Simulated assay, not measured.
Amino acid sequence: MMIALTLVAPIFVAVPAMAQQVGFGGLKADASAPVEVSADQLSVRQEDGHAVFSGNVVIGQGEMRLAADQVTVEYADAGQSRIKSLHAKGNVTLVSGEDAAEAAEASYNVEAGEVVLTGDVVMTQGQNVLTGDRMQVDLAAGTAKVDGRVRSVLQPGTN
């Protein structure tokens, strides 16, 4: 009787102060694909090679989407033709394939193909949920590592 209840009920796992490696994005993302940004407002700081997009910011690169209240773009060169990194703040959502993650902030190193989400990170994969303090996503490998107070809610498979 106890075994049947365990198989039907969702599984809740808490893993304190340990990292958990998970897949993210289903397919590997193309970090060399063009980056498209849309927002309500843009402020450019020529002196330090930064641009600040604010209000309903949505950034797309291939199949990946990043949304936030504000995103600061750091350019790799003074001519502002190649993006080096992005830093998103406020209501951050990262979506790649069937997977999605929410956080307070995110930093995307475009050249390295790595996104780091911080602040109450919540990742969903279908009905499965994973939370933690910090999530590091390797877009080329399609993997993520979650650190901090990691908690998982995993739905058992149905046959």
Rank of each mutant, 00 (worst) to 15 (best):
H87R: 12
A140L: 08
I83P: 15
T143S: 11
A9S: 14
G126Y: 01
S54K: 07
D69H: 03
E102Q: 04
L117W: 02
Q41M: 07
V95G: 04
A140Y: 03
V110F: 12
V52T: 08
G97K: 03
T6Y: 15
L117A: 09
D77K: 09
V13Y: 03
N56G: 04
G142D: 02
L86Y: 09
R134T: 06
V150C: 05
A101N: 08
V8F: 02
E63I: 00
G26D: 12
G23A: 09
K89A: 05
M1F: 14
L154G: 06
T158N: 01
E47M: 14
N91S: 13
A68G: 03
L130G: 06
I11Y: 05
E105P: 04
M18T: 13
V121G: 07
V95C: 04
T118A: 05
V122T: 11
S81K: 14
Q41H: 12
D77N: 11
V15P: 09
V52R: 11
V52E: 07
P16D: 08
A14G: 06
V73S: 03
M64W: 02
M2H: 06
R45K: 12
V35E: 01
V95F: 05
D120P: 09
L154T: 10
V44D: 09
R82M: 13
V44T: 12
E102L: 11
D40E: 10
G55I: 00
V52G: 08
L5A: 11
Q155T: 08
V116S: 04
V37M: 01
D40F: 06
Q127L: 08
A141L: 07
E105I: 05
G157C: 03
A19F: 11
E74H: 07
V115W: 02
R65Y: 00
M18C: 10
E105N: 07
V44Y: 14
L42P: 00
L5N: 09
